[in-house]
Simulated assay, not measured.
Amino acid sequence: MDVLAKRIIDAHGGIDHWRSFKTVTAHLVQGGALWGLKGKAGVLDDTNVTVDLRREHASHAPFGDAARKSSFTPDLVELQNGKGDTIEALPQPRASFAGHTLETPWNDLQLAYFAGIAMWTYLTMPFLLAEDGVESAALGTWREKDETWQRLQVRFPANIATHSTEQTLYVGDDGLLRRHDYDVEIAGNTPGAHYVSGYREVQGILFPTKRRIYPRQPDGQSLAEPLVVSIDLDHITLG
């Protein structure tokens, strides 16, 4: 593992402590332009998410209404009722996004896939850097406003479903993440700059509770608007 990657992981609570847990659950309040652009305004504005720390799985509940929840894995997305019975299913979901642009609407199962890869990635980062097949390398410094951040380039193996194969993390002097860049492959490779803040300690692990995602320009600078996605987290628990 890259030295910077290890420093980031240690600052967030350490890999040994992280691996003593199996799940993360959080309450989400979400906003931003993306949901309406995709024809899904309001579906996941106020929901809860649970992610599995031993395999790539996430579930949002409620999903649009109290009678539905989602189940995401890289190979299968389902919408289920309260008893866990499948209402709808989409095998090999990533293939369904072929030819999509940022403006292409999503159906509910595609929304569940996007929400699944997003929250699983966000809630397992930076500990995801220690997973088999994940490669990372320091990129040098980046100046943003009055701060200087270290950058870490990350490359994910094909078996991990996430926004894009290559992503960039930005870290402050304290080892905590400040920003997370990626291209949303399933939305026409749309570039995003994802800012994180509002860290809170939960059972010995540090989590950012405020996430704001903006468009990213070719030179790496972010635009001040539109706000693409906002995510505020509370009631975070490790199980």
Rank of each mutant, 00 (worst) to 15 (best):
R7M: 08
R7Y: 14
H12G: 15
W18G: 10
S20C: 09
K22S: 08
K22Q: 06
K22V: 15
K22D: 09
K22W: 13
V29T: 06
Q30V: 06
G32C: 11
G32E: 08
A33H: 12
L34R: 11
W35Q: 09
W35N: 15
W35G: 04
G36A: 05
G39H: 04
G39T: 04
K40L: 01
G42M: 09
L44Y: 07
T50S: 07
T50K: 15
D52P: 11
L53H: 14
R54S: 12
R55E: 08
E56D: 13
H57A: 14
S59D: 04
A61N: 13
A61I: 07
P62Q: 00
F63P: 01
G64Y: 07
G64A: 04
D65R: 04
A67V: 07
A67N: 02
A67K: 06
R68G: 00
K69E: 02
K69L: 02
P74Y: 00
P74R: 01
D75F: 04
L76K: 00
L76R: 01
V77E: 00
E78M: 03
E78N: 04
E78T: 11
L79H: 01
L79T: 10
Q80L: 05
Q80T: 12
G82W: 00
D85K: 05
T86V: 09
T86C: 11
T86Q: 15
E88I: 15
E88M: 11
A89N: 14
P91H: 11
P91L: 13
P93H: 10
R94Q: 13
R94V: 15
F97E: 15
A98M: 13
G99P: 06
T101A: 14
P105H: 00
W106S: 06
D108C: 02
Q110D: 03
